[in-house]
Amino acid sequence: MLSIEQFREITKKELSNIKFKEKSFEELKDTLNDNSLITADSHCNPKTPNLSDFKSNSETGYQRAIFNTKFSHLTFSSGKDKNINWLDLELPVELRNQSRKKCIDLIGKIDDKPIICELKYKPKDSKSNSDRPEYGIFELIIYYYLILCNNEKLNNNKVHHNSKEISDFNWNNIINEKPLLILAANKKYWENWFDKKTYQPCDTRDEILNLVHNLNKKLEINLCLFETNNIDLESDDTKYKGIDVSKEWKQITKI
């Protein structure tokens, strides 16, 4: 089993091999070098997200809509089907004394298996760039690293939401039971990034999946990519209650 320091150093090395020079990747490197993210221990009381009357044609609206479905049905490449029960959302994974913290999008479980999920979303008619899949992959891994470092403090500070809609949980469970790490995005997002005519330079589907395979092996993790249906978050009928969000998620595999 890797130590936390070994996990960090391997992640830094693999991130340095990424060929893209965008500012966002430099910020990921800075995160791994920022010791305040693992030494800070300020009181943290995350604000309960608005889940009933929220309008946003963005990743935030996508997150709310998924959480409001209560569960998602996953079809794995092995053919197995499993349900994720969603427990909480938008939780800080560090305890610096500042308003904007690094947060994981969704936390859930399959049976007793913890799930850490990062989301990416591309609106139907959007022409703007979205985060590259490689960015999302390393972002998720770094959030897991921060949980490994901070789980006791997150537990002691009771960093979770308590309401009728949101369940309590124990951060130690994520450490004790090796979690499944999921990068999920809507179909439009994956279609855009897998189309080299749209973005240059862009890795192919197989190259991205090879990256996931190598990171899983070197970091001793279980990270998967999943595709959800497209959802029209601008529809007046949606209202982010999960009405138009398919619960069906399909694992992305090589063609």
Rank of each mutant, 00 (worst) to 15 (best):
1 M>E: 13
4 I>C: 13
6 Q>H: 09
7 F>P: 15
7 F>W: 13
10 I>V: 15
13 K>N: 11
13 K>A: 14
14 E>F: 14
15 L>H: 14
17 N>G: 07
17 N>W: 12
23 K>I: 08
27 E>L: 14
33 N>R: 15
33 N>H: 13
33 N>L: 14
34 D>H: 04
35 N>V: 13
35 N>T: 10
37 L>R: 03
39 T>M: 02
41 D>A: 10
43 H>S: 07
47 K>A: 05
48 T>K: 00
51 L>Y: 02
51 L>V: 07
52 S>Q: 06
52 S>R: 07
55 K>Q: 07
57 N>V: 02
59 E>T: 00
66 I>H: 01
66 I>M: 03
68 N>K: 03
69 T>P: 04
69 T>Q: 02
71 F>K: 11
75 T>I: 09
75 T>G: 06
78 S>L: 01
79 G>L: 09
80 K>A: 00
82 K>I: 09
84 I>M: 05
84 I>A: 10
84 I>V: 12
86 W>M: 06
89 L>W: 11
89 L>R: 05
91 L>S: 05
91 L>R: 08
92 P>N: 09
98 Q>F: 07
98 Q>Y: 12
99 S>Y: 07
105 D>P: 08
105 D>N: 14
108 G>A: 05
109 K>E: 03
110 I>L: 00
112 D>L: 13
115 I>M: 06
115 I>K: 02
118 E>V: 08
120 K>I: 03
122 K>D: 03
125 D>R: 07
125 D>Q: 04
129 N>R: 11
130 S>P: 07
133 P>V: 06
134 E>C: 11
137 I>Q: 09
138 F>V: 15
140 L>M: 11
140 L>A: 13
140 L>I: 14
140 L>E: 13
142 I>E: 10
143 Y>H: 15
145 Y>G: 13
147 I>F: 09
147 I>C: 12
147 I>K: 08
148 L>M: 12
157 N>E: 08
158 K>Q: 13
159 V>A: 06
161 H>S: 07
161 H>M: 05
163 S>W: 03
164 K>R: 00
166 I>V: 02
171 W>F: 06
172 N>T: 08
174 I>E: 10
178 K>E: 12
178 K>D: 11
181 L>F: 01
187 K>I: 05
192 N>T: 10
192 N>R: 11
193 W>A: 06
193 W>T: 12
195 D>I: 02
197 K>R: 09
199 Y>H: 07
205 R>F: 08
208 I>G: 08
208 I>C: 05
210 N>P: 02
211 L>C: 11
213 H>I: 00
214 N>C: 09
215 L>I: 13
215 L>Q: 13
218 K>R: 12
219 L>N: 08
219 L>W: 15
221 I>S: 14
222 N>L: 04
224 C>V: 14
227 E>M: 06
227 E>W: 00
227 E>S: 11
229 N>S: 05
231 I>L: 00
232 D>E: 06
236 D>N: 06
237 D>C: 10
239 K>V: 08
241 K>Y: 10
243 I>L: 07
243 I>H: 03
246 S>D: 03
246 S>R: 02
246 S>L: 09
246 S>G: 04
247 K>Q: 12
247 K>D: 04
249 W>R: 05
249 W>P: 04
250 K>I: 07
255 I>F: 02
